[in-house]
Amino acid sequence: MKNKKIFENVVHGVFLILGLITVGCVLLITVYLFAAGIPAIREIGLFPFLFGKTWESTSADPSYGILPFILTSIYGTAGAMILGVPIGFLTAVYLSKLAPKRVKAAVGAAVSLLAGIPSVVYGLVGMLVLVPGIRKLFHLADGASLLAAIIVLAVMVLPSIIKVSITALDAVPEEYEYASLALGATPIETYFKVSVPAAKSGIAAAVVLGIGRAIGEAMAVMMVSGNVANMPGLFESVRFLTTAVASEMSYSSGLQRQALFSIALVLFLFIMLINGVLNLLLKGKKEA
């Protein structure tokens, strides 16, 4: 009997450890990023690092200002949202409320497929379709630009926005809609003026999730954005926070390498901020 109790306690302990591994992983990532990221910021100085406008890590007199990367990431994400959110949102409303069952299933499967396509495939198609297209359309020397990155990101965030919004819209109680219909509103008015407001925290969560995806995307963006550390402009060749890390890591050393870790730390803080907002939104929904 006593042996059995000890055995059960051991099993309990093993599962507890397994459960705590996720927490350990988060701590590991946080600790490593801070430990690797802080030294360079100390050496360069927080202000010149965050707000310096030039990044010349390989020149004789290197300067490490990551403002161009930060702004590019923000502009790129904002642009992707401006393109992606309306399309994703309207598609979600249609699929959730209007679409016949079969259409919903078919388009839903297509959207899942979109979510599953590897980011390098997006990058490849963007490189060979979008970049030459932009070059011809706007008569540029090179089409690899912020605009190309924005379009690719907008496509890539569509599935997250659509799926999470559909879940939120599906969860709206039918009684709300019936009440609105009974008061004389047309179905379309009901969906947009009753269902959508009722699902607004879920839809907001979808947008925030999309922002997280867009700001963290590296490979696809790297392939279409031109990868030069310019201040952002729509037709400028630009570098994002993610691509700044990825493009120089393989040949970096010394302070340059440490500065790359600092960029990753900045990116991580952005993501944690977004995660925090996402959690607040989702929690708010649960309580309501």
């Binding site: 988060v26 490593y32 690797a36 997280g212 993501i271 995660n275």
Partner: peptide
């Protein structure tokens, strides 16, 4: 912790 992990971009996983 699990939610946080699923939000972290893959480039950061690569670095760590």
């Amino acid at each position: 912790a699990a939610e946080t992990l699923s939000g972290i971009p893959s480039i950061i996983y690569g670095l760590v």
